[in-house]
């Protein structure tokens, strides 16, 4: 695959419901080829340029559309961008031809050391300019438009002067990138930090949202942990329905990264999301038909 321009990866062809690809499920997926629209690969698991994990990525990408979700770009860090890492991401992309490449609105590294955790950013003008500039550099290098995901957080900074939804909208505009809207993270942040989910859903720049994430969280004593180890919570599905009424067909992914269940359980979650997704698509289509008829 040649990655000549930011528009080469056409994320608009990504449709329906996908699930996160996890190693224990790969053999079953390749054998039975379940009826799913796409898979998302945690790119960092497959960047080694050899071995079984790389082969898995290629074999799944030969059968299904795939997206690449990254955790190592450290988009918000004050460190220089790690182009060695980006090169690996680009090489993988050239092999599996993803429909979308994404990472997180956070920082993960400092002074060339990596936390491997998604650390929160202060939402300030300075951070906005800094992060937008780095996204531009990353997009220029990869030759594609990336999507940036809102992260779950257990704290907010007193320095923040912009609310998160305004920040991510402005960032997407400034860097000409897409948004990966994680509705589980939105809900976790509502509980942990008092973030207003309705306001977020009403204000997010829907035209920039290229993908939605749904996942499960874990209830701790005084906060919710974004653990990706359980079913999508009912309250998250309610927010999902609310967002889908935005009148745009947005591909949706089920994430389940820890305490990984049988594939059938993950598939069940995808079907649940698919039913909600289909309901809104049907509604949208009938509205179009009515508009055409009139």
């Amino acid at each position: 695959m040649s990655m000549r321009s930011p528009n080469f990866i056409d994320s608009s062809t990504l449709k329906g419901i996908g699930v996160g690809l996890r190693a224990p499920h790969v053999a079953e997926i390749l054998t039975n080829q379940p009826e799913l629209d796409w898979f998302e690969l945690l790119a960092d698991n497959h960047i080694a340029e050899g071995g079984w994990l790389r082969r898995q990525a290629i074999e799944v990408a030969n059968v299904y559309p795939v997206t690449m979700h990254c955790v190592g770009m450290s988009i918000g860090s004050i460190d220089p961008i790690n182009f060695d890492y980006l090169k690996k991401i680009k090489n993988l992309a050239m092999e599996i031809n993803p429909k979308l490449i994404s990472d997180h609105l956070c920082w993960t590294s400092l002074h060339t050391h990596y936390s491997h955790d998604l650390l929160p950013l202060p939402y300030t003008e300075e951070a906005l300019i800094h992060v937008a500039s780095r996204i531009n550099q990353i997009q220029d290098y990869l030759g594609v438009r990336i999507a940036v995901e809102n992260v779950s957080a257990y704290l907010t900074y007193k320095h923040s002067i912009i609310n998160e939804v305004e920040f991510i909208n402005a960032l997407a505009q400034k860097a000409d990138c897409s948004i990966l809207f994680d509705i589980n993270n939105l809900y976790v942040n509502q509980v942990n930090n008092g973030q207003d989910s309705d306001e977020y859903i009403n204000n997010i720049d829907v035209n920039r949202v290229a993908e939605i994430h749904l996942a499960g969280f874990e209830e701790k004593e005084n906060y919710y942990l974004d653990a990706h180890n359980s079913h999508v919570h009912e309250d998250v599905l309610v927010l999902y329905e609310k967002f889908l009424s935005c009148n745009k067909d947005i591909p949706t992914l089920i994430e389940w990264d820890h305490d990984i269940p049988e594939f059938s359980v993950l598939y069940g979650e995808a079907i649940k999301a698919k039913n909600v997704h289909r309901m809104f698509n049907d509604k949208r289509e009938s509205e179009y038909e009515l508009a055409d008829a009139s």
Partner: peptide, 8 residues
Amino acid sequence: PSCSPDLN
């Protein structure tokens, strides 16, 4: 501390 974005 880890010196690589690749946890492996």
